Simulated scan of single mutants.
Amino acid sequence: MSRRMLLATNNAKKLVELQRILDAALGGGAIELVSLGDVEAYPEVPETGLTFGENALIKAREGAKRTGLPAIADDSGITVDALNGMPGVLSARWAGKHGDDTANNELVLAQISDFADEHRGAAFVCAAALVTPGGREHLVEGRQQGRLLRSPRGTGGFGYDPLFVGEGQDRTNAELTPEEKDAISHRGKALRALAKVIAKEPVR
């Protein structure tokens, strides 16, 4: 029988991605993920943390408290060397409006337009948290090192994927298949680590 868990997001792409990764790690049907749209609505908690880990825990704690389900939340983004690690936790709203991928990508490209290719290093970072109704907390992190191109390529993924080429790759994350991306991405690494926690600890 599958265990029901909350993924504290309204992002349908994240739900599909996490369900796919958990199915691969734990076997299909082990975990049934539901999103915020599947539970009784509650006020969105402000993401006031200064790190990805703090924000992931804020969201997971609230989800577990409000629903009585084990809650998973992640916070992720891109850190650009030439921008001293920014956008960081501001990645989704770097251009002002939350979730405007095109505007965010255009702004980052404009901000580093004068930097040579060898100085366009970047990393995707994902912190993933699991908080149980009983108060147990787990936090893991995954990173993908790479570099930013000068123009977007590819139509897959979301966020900064069309700009980002991971180490050892010649395609952007947006040009990879979902399975290829899962194998090397920051979120794939973090969620596989979290899947190991879920597999061996009762989530009460």
Rank of each mutant, 00 (worst) to 15 (best):
D170K: 10
Y42M: 01
R171D: 06
L149M: 12
L33G: 11
G168M: 10
A71T: 03
G68D: 04
G27P: 03
D101N: 14
I31S: 05
A195R: 06
G157M: 09
G68F: 02
L83T: 02
R136Y: 02
K59P: 07
I198Y: 13
D23H: 02
V34R: 10
A41F: 02
F115H: 11
T67A: 08
L6H: 11
A8P: 06
K200N: 13
E167V: 12
D161V: 06
E179V: 03
A73F: 11
A193S: 14
W94C: 02
P133T: 09
R4Y: 00
V131L: 06
L69G: 09
F158V: 04
L148D: 02
A56W: 05
D161G: 14
E175Y: 01
Q169N: 10
K59G: 11
L149V: 00
K97Q: 12
N104F: 07
G134K: 07
P133R: 10
R171N: 07
L90F: 15
G168V: 00
V89W: 07
V80Y: 06
D101I: 01
L26S: 09
G96S: 11
T9D: 09
E137Q: 15
A25P: 05
G157D: 01
G166P: 12
D101V: 01
L130Q: 09
L90G: 12
D81Q: 12
N10R: 15
A122N: 08
Q145A: 15
V197P: 06
R136S: 15
N11I: 03
A64C: 01
V34I: 14
